[in-house]
Design a binder for these strands. Structure first.
Lengths: 201, 201
DNA sequence: AAAGGACTTGACTGATCAGTCAAGTCAGCT
DNA sequence: AGCTGACTTGACTGATCAGTCAAGTCCTTT
């Protein structure tokens, strides 16, 4: 009784692609079905509603695309300071790649859908919050490691991770609003500056 | 040939109210007309399309609601440091007020619509970018004044204003994603810390 | 008072929306 | 071989979407 088709996976992938490139509200179930090469009936065999698809798609996107990248970037054998810089670089490159492919900066997929639908679907809002939290975990661990080995000026890792996360969210949003990935080019130094700055206070 | 009705104004106000509380995509022209007490035909007498209404509504919202508040908060006779704190306080209070009225944190209206529709309507994206820039102007002037009288550790007012703006955008987005206005309660000290921090670098 | 134009009305398009359903097909198990 | 249940198909809802239009009303100007 194992999986006999990849229909479900194709729907999840099509959903992320389209919603990330456009928005939740402007992508229709028909569009997602077309791009996945699936008929409407099959869609509703796998997902009870469009919202359910979106929640599942974001979970799947984290697990299959983002989690592995985070694991690699934040590998414990990499110096904490280096982890932060690799993370910033990765964000810049990804947004730039999407910009060149789509003609616009898509921003953070979780933020975009959370900001758009957070006021209308508590489930989508909670899922986007949860996925951002999972990314934040790696950040905080890097700060903790940097505090332990004295390589980073960390006093309150929880608070400082949150500040850096806030700044990063703002930067990605600004890049999207200005439709210019270059806003993110100097993210690394900015984040390190922010970190150094927060120590005396 | 002076204006003989306030229909246009009621449409603009209804549009901002609804789109800010929900999202651009999930608010229909019919809904906006209902809330404004206006028939569909009148709507299209004043605005050629939904996008045109949104652009005009954001411009009007800035002019009638936000510009006066910014002028008051950033009054030149107030100490620069005080201007920043008043600005942070105002943002916290406004988001909290909306949270209590609507049940959720609405975030920055310009960011929300810019993030949602930026990938699909260049006009809306450009307008939201423009309005954010107008707010940024007051911020930068406060930093310049603080640099001149030595009350704020400012070296590059343009760059520092942009960093603070980025952080503020991120904070409002985070408050929306977590649906918790309290995220914004300590904005003032955080912004001042960020400013002090950036000087040595 | 008559004309003209700004504004209003409500009925109307055709497209598209999310979601349903009955009648299938097909693979794996017994 | 034949059963079972997962999956597929395509036609189908009824609601809602943005936008149109012709026939009005009502104020202002002359």
């Amino acid at each position: 009784m194992g999986r006999t088709s990849d229909t479900r996976e194709r729907l999840l992938a099509a959903a992320i692609d389209l919603i990330w490139a456009q928005s939740y509200g402007s992508v229709s179930v028909d569009q997602i079905c077309d791009q996945a090469g699936v008929k409407k009936g099959s869609f509703y065999h796998f997902f009870p509603s469009k919202i359910d698809l979106a929640v599942a798609a974001y979970e799947a996107h984290w697990n299959s695309e983002m989690q592995p990248v985070f694991e690699e970037i934040f590998r414990p054998d990499v110096a904490p300071r280096e982890r932060l810089l690799r993370w910033c670089e990765q964000i810049y490159l990804k947004q730039k790649e999407k910009f060149e492919a789509l003609g616009h900066v898509p921003g953070c997929p979780f933020c975009s859908v959370g900001a758009e639908m957070g006021t209308q679907s508590e489930r989508l809002r909670a899922k986007s919050e949860e996925l951002l939290e999972r990314g934040s975990f790696h950040l905080e661990r890097a700060l903790l490691d940097g505090k332990r080995d004295g390589s980073l000026p960390v006093t309150d890792s929880k608070l400082q991770a949150q500040s850096i996360g806030t700044f990063m969210l703002g930067a990605m949003l600004q890049a999207k609003l200005q439709n210019d990935p270059e806003v993110l080019r100097t993210l690394g130094p900015q984040v390190l500056g922010l970190l150094g700055a927060m120590t005396p206070a």
